[in-house]
């Protein structure tokens, strides 16, 4: 009887191998996807923009922006929209409401101190935590962004805070606010983070969707050019203000922003927390290394 079972198991295994050997199934070779070439070498620091758009000196220091540029429709893109970072609107806006909600949720989740510990903040010290996400988490066996960690750690407390939901982003915003002004500092020089950065870099150049655009088609090749009424900005220094309050929209995490990017470019979006979005998050966050966390920010 055990011999018969072994035969069946072997047959089934052989069948699976045969099917998986078909091209396009689980073929180890990548499908032929067009890339926007050349695949640039990116510096994992915000100053890398000096070799891309060259606008970095104009927005490096939020307190020394040239506001004459902000008032010019032809030139405001050169400030990389940093003029909308706080304290651009010191009156109350949607980001402030989210911040209050996030703080209340955080205090409730962390009553036992286990929530902070799960996020990687020993003794509840949240200062600087935002600047070190995304990170590789050995307990999860993968690289995760802060919002994915919040979802995971809230679930451990029996609470549902879906990645991308208002409450998840609100908690993320509260945690980010405790790193306000601290430079983003993720290390992509080795290990799983380096691998994620490289995958993200390749994804940034991978053509997709009905229009066959890659992110880099516009945000590398055509920075400063106009798409209809909007100027195309640099990918450097762009994640320091997330989750962001969108005046046309809602509280928006970076992964929800990537969904909006995808939809605008005619690309089927993915679920928040998907591996591809997390790789892009690692890539884009590395391109913001050295830029201070700036929340709660607004964008149109």
């Amino acid at each position: 009887m055990s011999k018969a079972w072994t035969e069946h198991a072997t047959l089934a295994l052989g069948l699976m191998l045969l099917l998986s050997a078909q091209p396009g199934a689980a073929d180890p070779a990548e499908p032929r996807r067009e890339l926007d070439l050349p695949l640039e070498r990116y510096e994992p620091h915000v100053r890398g923009d000096l070799r891309l758009s060259g606008t970095y000196p104009l927005w490096r220091d939020r307190s020394r922006l040239d506001w004459r540029l902000a008032g010019s429709p032809e030139e405001h893109w050169k400030l990389n929209w940093k003029f909308m970072d706080p304290p651009y609107n010191s009156a109350v806006h949607g980001g402030h409401f989210a911040l209050d909600r996030g703080e209340a949720l955080y205090r409730q989740l962390d009553r036992s101190g286990r929530f902070a510990a799960c996020l990687g903040a020993p003794r509840g010290r949240l200062k600087g935590l935002r600047t070190r996400y995304p990170r590789y988490r050995a307990d999860l066996g993968r690289v995760v962004g802060l919002e994915e960690a919040i979802e995971h750690c809230a679930a451990a407390q029996g609470q549902v805070l879906e990645n991308g939901s208002y409450d998840n982003s609100a908690v993320s915003l509260y945690i980010a606010s405790l790193s306000q002004g601290l430079p983003i500092a993720i290390d992509v020089s080795r290990g799983p983070m380096r691998a994620a950065f490289e995958r993200g870099r390749r994804l940034f150049h991978t053509r997709a969707g009905r229009l066959n655009f890659a992110c880099s088609s516009c945000h590398v090749r055509n920075v400063g050019q106009m798409l209809r009424g909007s100027h195309i900005t640099t990918p450097y220094g762009d994640v320091a203000h997330y989750p962001v309050y969108r005046t046309q929209y809602m509280l928006q995490s970076l992964h929800l922003r990537l969904i909006e990017c995808n939809l605008d470019a005619g690309v089927q979006p993915l679920r928040p927390g998907s591996r591809a979005y997390t790789d892009l998050e690692v890539f884009l966050t590395a391109l913001s290394n050295g830029y201070p966390v700036s929340v709660p920010a607004e964008r149109h």
Partner: peptide, 10 residues
């Protein structure tokens, strides 16, 4: 419907 074209998913 954007499903007919390749996405960025791994």
């Amino acid at each position: 419907d954007l499903t007919p074209w390749p996405s960025l998913s791994h």
